[in-house]
Write a protein that binds this DNA or RNA. Structure first.
Lengths: 245, 245
DNA sequence: GTAGAATTATGTTTTACAACACACAAAGAT
DNA sequence: ATCTTTGTGTGTTGTAAAACATAATTCTAC
């Protein structure tokens, strides 16, 4: 058996196991109400796709066609502003679904999605998802719930980004990373490594100011920094800064 | 028949006609799939409430319990920021529904709602709405659609408010008012009269700057202003300013 | 009708942040 | 190894918009 066959077989094995995990074990809990006929339909249509670091998954103005399911890696949703200043709107972790909003709104994407690191995605045609929603009320509720939570975050983010000062915005971003990805085993190192530029695009500031403000936090012993590795020493203080300013 | 009886009767008549119009004629089209038994349930639970100018309908951190339906008047959804600087998030016109997001997200309100002018609202317990959603797929789709559109607007607003300069933000606000409420019969006067302060809270700027920038537009013959009456002379230019700046 | 408050208007000062410029280190390519 | 590119760190300058101050005008209440 040559290496190609082996690789294909191992890949098929991987696909099979992943799909089984996603559809059957169903970590987000949205498929469990489907009967086995429906489940077969989904497993048939479900495809796996890998993305390289920084590869674009979809772009603003594209027509939405698929529901994406983040299985491994990290994904950012962002929107390009004037003069090419992108704003990161949302960061995703496994297992989260995305790409469906624009389809439901019946409009082109208003934001773009890109892989943050090597990433594996599941992909399901929205037409099929629509069909399933119409058949299964629990699925409808899943999306109502998700959309509602995202809308709340988005409204809150508006205040954070427009009214807080630089330190408050950066603190807010660090807290978001902490809440979204958590700590490593040492219970203090953020489980995501971002460029200063991404940190800036998350907090609505220039890269220089992200660097400067981060250094400020280091001087105040609120965090330590080792390259892109950020350790949070004083989470309470960080939340205080985020809250008041 | 004395005036009190007459007033009560006329009010009952008004209530009956409004409810009939809302539930049966169903301007937003969300109740039409209900059978008559279901419709009766809704008409029974549906109550009318009047609000004075500036009266608060619900406030941030309240527990959401009702679906509100704006029948007459105007309503603003806003969020108080630091130092009491409110940001207007959304403006509503008849017939639009609101107040449901937080209930669906299973969290307290993150924004407040207040009447902009004397306003009549319909009110329906969310528990009942939930029940109806579970029974009627079209109703589920209605909310999925609404939430999706609102989330898109909210994400877009983030860029507008954070990246555009003052003139661009104010122009954007005027365009929003135009698209939301339209013109009067003269085809140029905005069909909403806002205080400069509200205009400022819509565009993320201080009241002084709203006044100043508005004067600027007047000097440039883009608009005319007569108290709170705003006439748009050059909508094309306004859209251009909104887009690039 | 007058007092008082709220809203609108405009000028002046202050400041937070972007823009720019440059130095240096790390990572990839040749 | 050397060159190039990409990311990081820091000082300097410029400016958009907030903050503050103070009239003038328009609403509201009694």
């Amino acid at each position: 058996m040559n290496w190609l066959v082996a690789s294909v077989l191992s890949r098929l094995q991987m696909i099979k196991s992943v799909i089984e995990r996603v559809i059957s074990d169903d970590m987000a809990g949205i498929w469990k109400i489907l009967d086995s006929e429906e489940k077969r339909k989904i497993v048939d249509a479900f495809t796996l796709q890998n993305f390289r670091k920084n590869q674009i998954i979809y772009a603003e103005k594209d027509t939405p066609e698929n529901l994406w399911c983040l299985l491994k890696g990290k994904v950012k949703l962002y929107k390009d502003g004037l003069g090419g200043r992108p704003q990161i709107l949302r960061l995703l972790r496994p297992v989260q679904y995305f790409g469906y909003r624009a389809y439901f709104a019946d409009e082109p994407y208003v934001s773009s999605a890109a892989a943050f690191e090597p990433t594996t995605l599941g992909c399901l045609p929205m037409a099929l998802v629509s069909e399933m929603i119409t058949q299964n009320n629990r699925l409808a509720w899943f999306f109502i719930h998700e959309l509602s939570r995202n809308l709340g975050s988005s409204d809150t983010k508006i205040i954070n980004l427009t009214q807080k000062h630089i330190r408050g915005r950066l603190a807010e971003a660090l807290i978001l990373l902490r809440d979204n990805y958590g700590y490593e085993d040492d219970n203090s190192t953020l489980n995501i490594f971002m460029a200063r530029e991404d940190l800036a695009n998350l907090s609505n500031m220039t890269t220089s100011n992200a660097i400067r403000t981060l250094s400020g936090f280091v001087n105040e012993k609120i965090i330590t920094v080792d390259g892109r590795r950020i350790k949070i020493l004083n989470e309470t203080m960080l939340r205080k800064i985020s809250k008041f300013g």
